[in-house]
Design a protein around this nucleic acid. Structure first.
Length: 135
DNA sequence: GCCAACGTTGGC
DNA sequence: GCCAACGTTGGC
């Protein structure tokens, strides 16, 4: 069981879009590091859903329901996609500013490597961010 | 709109 | 295989 952060620009694909669709395909990843992370996902893994650019906040939790398969949006078989469902919307989004101000999770990829769209995260950090959303 | 960070490409 | 040039992402 692993934990992740998935990043998306909400004007392209927002958490509410996933809620509406039920099951969403996480495709379009064109970065090898992110692709390798996708490949390591297992059914049942949980991911924080982060809105980049607009909002800059963690808004919900998604659950992986289908492991990596060839990305349907390209003929190029180097790229992979997974399927996810909306697990839970956060009562209160946790903003990047909040995480930075808090300081406890400065080591995570979201803060350190802002360009990566699929980021592995420790369970303790995952839980910590969820806890912040309940305060 | 700017800029830093970082990934990718291509010439050598 | 190295490295400069270029493109993209994303925070500010």
């Amino acid at each position: 069981m692993n934990y992740w952060i998935l990043k998306s620009e909400p004007n392209v694909y927002a958490y509410d879009d996933l809620v509406k669709q039920g099951t969403g395909t996480w495709d379009g990843v064109r970065n090898y590091t992110a692709r390798n992370n996708l490949r390591n996902m297992q059914v049942g893994d949980l991911a924080l859903f982060y809105h980049s650019n607009i909002g800059k906040e963690v808004v919900g939790v998604a659950r992986i329901v289908k492991e990596a398969f060839p990305d349907p949006t390209t003929e190029d078989n180097r790229w992979l996609a997974v399927e996810v469902v909306a697990e839970k919307k956060l009562e209160k989004p946790v903003t990047l500013a909040q995480l930075k101000a808090d300081g406890s999770v400065n080591h995570i990829g979201l803060v350190k490597q802002s360009r990566l769209s699929v980021i592995p995260i420790e369970k303790s950090d995952f839980d910590y961010i969820l806890k912040l959303s309940q305060q």
